[in-house]
Design a protein around this nucleic acid. Structure first.
Length: 225
DNA sequence: GCGACAG
DNA sequence: ATCTTGTCGC
């Protein structure tokens, strides 16, 4: 069975998907990235009936927009908690082909290894683009944690059932609900947290993902008329 | 069997 | 994610 051919995603049932995720665990490399990414991309999808619209924004360390591409196509896979990658990665990868600027790192909207099988969309996606990735989720999918203090920069670790760290619950803005940050691949948990804070401006959601979401809503309106 | 459950 | 307006609090 082909393990990661994205074109076969739509023909898979949930059990196949879970097997694929389990088989990919050997490819996970949570090693230090050891550099600050000066050019990063942010990914997000919006939906219009049966269309999925993927947008990728590329910004520099001053949050200036460097590049932007998007792609939309029919969604072939339902939303199933734990299997988000199978729904969204096919659309994302088509948009990725259009990108001319190669970022140093990519932020995804969703989990990285903070996932039942350590295979959230940021992790799964890294195998296709071969770049370090970070998952930024607005809510928890998996793991246990204590509430972090209320100041910006406060954080607590997310743990799996074996008490291993799988990410952080990070307060990116004072008195506002924290975000769930986990490394996708080719980066450590602490690097993911630090880089996320560096790329956070005055809002709860870090700039790469926030801008991607903003533009995907804008593009959706253009498409709908 | 009963909850939990990214977007 | 999406459907949708005003409103409470810093």
């Amino acid at each position: 069975m082909e393990i990661i051919n994205i074109h076969d995603f739509k023909n898979l049932n949930p059990k196949h998907c879970i097997e694929i995720q389990k088989n990919l665990i050997d490819k996970l490399e949570l090693k230090p990235f050891n550099k600050f990414p000066e050019i990063v991309a942010g990914v997000d999808l919006s939906f219009l009936n049966d269309l999925g619209i993927a947008i990728i924004v590329v910004i520099d360390e001053t949050f200036k927009l460097v590049d932007l591409v998007y792609h939309y196509q029919k969604i072939e896979f339902p939303y199933i908690p734990g299997l988000l990658a199978f729904r969204e990665l096919p659309v994302f990868l088509e948009a990725w082909k259009k990108l001319k600027t190669k970022p140093d790192l990519v932020f995804f909207d969703g989990q990285g290894i903070a996932h039942p099988r350590k295979m959230g969309i940021a992790t799964h996606g890294s195998f296709f683009i071969n770049l370090p990735t970070i998952g930024i989720a607005k809510s928890r999918l998996y793991g246990t944690y204590d509430e972090p203090c209320i100041q910006k920069g406060c954080f607590s670790y997310l743990y799996d059932k074996s008490k291993n760290k799988i990410g952080v619950v990070l307060r990116t803005r004072e008195k506002v609900k924290p975000v769930f940050v986990s490394p996708g691949n080719y980066i450590t948990i602490n690097e993911a947290k630090e880089i996320t804070l560096e790329y956070t401006s005055k809002y709860k959601i870090p700039e790469p993902t926030r801008l991607a979401h903003m533009y995907s809503q804008k593009i959706k309106k253009e498409i709908s008329g």
